[in-house]
Design a protein around this nucleic acid. Structure first.
Length: 263
DNA sequence: AGGTATGTTAATTG
DNA sequence: GCAATTAACATACC
């Protein structure tokens, strides 16, 4: 589920498994996943170097190379990393990085919707992708300012990576549920106090999801996320959750607990 | 068989 | 220019 919390878990995984080991070889099984390079370009950029840092911005994972460059991973809807030794790569491995110590890092992407890119600096990449600030790095006043310059539905706003980076369909539902706000509310309807509730919910939901290692089973009992399915019940009022269309996606809500201000 | 799926981008329409 | 909608991408699961 690669939204901000999932990618943060991947970042920690990369950091604990894959730093400081020289890279011996790179095999690209699906060249289509390379965004701005080729298999030989990728090999030239990372072979004989090591990952020295693991950073994240929104849904993007940055692996810092010993020469100062960056390898950037995006995971689409289904991707993940797997570090292993002495066994076969997982199915749907699209790129395999092998280290001098005979361990391997697999970039696994069943649906091929993610991408690997090279970047000179994180800032260059973030600017080129026109990403907004990381959703966990925005304070109350900045959050209000970002809200003031937009119209349209609040769920679409939360998921717009150019405004806030890192929130996708699942966590936008959770944030709106925790804030008690309906996904189709217009930004211009939200009062400063609603925006503060939304900001608090954003910070708390993303932090709690990271603490739960992005595993729905470990999340707080107050979370809607594990009940986000047909027949699910609201953890707050026990009512049935409902599905509707918002921002071109399925949005799950508790109609009793989520309203627009003034409605 | 058809609908749905955690993302991004491009095209289209209002 | 902005907001909303749809299609496309590729694959898996119900």
């Amino acid at each position: 589920m690669p939204e901000l919390p999932d990618v943060e878990v991947y970042r920690r995984y990369l950091e604990t498994t894959s730093l400081h080991q020289p890279i011996r070889r790179v095999e690209v099984e699906s060249p289509g996943v390379l965004a701005n390079t080729s298999p030989t370009g990728l090999a030239r950029a990372i072979r004989k170097r090591a990952f020295e840092a693991a950073d994240r911005h929104g849904k993007y994972l940055f692996a810092g190379l010993s020469d100062g460059g960056w390898l950037v991973f995006h995971f689409g809807m289904t991707g993940f990393l797997r570090y292993f030794q002495g066994e076969d790569p997982p199915g749907h491995t699209r790129c395999l990085i092998s280290f001098d110590n005979d361990a391997h890092l697999a970039y696994v992407l069943p649906r091929k919707l993610g991408r690997i890119a090279l970047a000179d600096t994180r800032q260059d990449f973030i600017a080129e992708k026109q990403l907004g600030p990381d959703a966990l790095a925005v304070d109350r006043d900045s959050f209000r300012q970002l809200a003031a310059s937009h119209h349209g539905g609040v769920k679409a706003w939360l998921m717009n990576q150019s405004i806030l980076a890192g929130i996708g369909n699942v966590y936008s539902d959770e944030i709106l549920f925790q804030a008690g706000i309906h996904p189709l509310c217009k930004m211009e309807q939200l009062t400063p106090s609603h925006l503060d509730r939304l900001h608090n919910a954003t910070t708390e939901v993303l932090s709690a999801a990271i603490d739960a290692e992005a595993d729905p089973q470990k999340m707080p009992a107050s979370f809607l996320l594990p009940r986000r399915r047909r027949g699910g019940r609201c953890p707050r009022c026990g009512g049935k959750v409902e599905r509707l269309r918002a921002a071109g996606r399925s949005a799950w809500i508790c109609p009793g607990c989520q309203q627009c201000p003034g409605a």
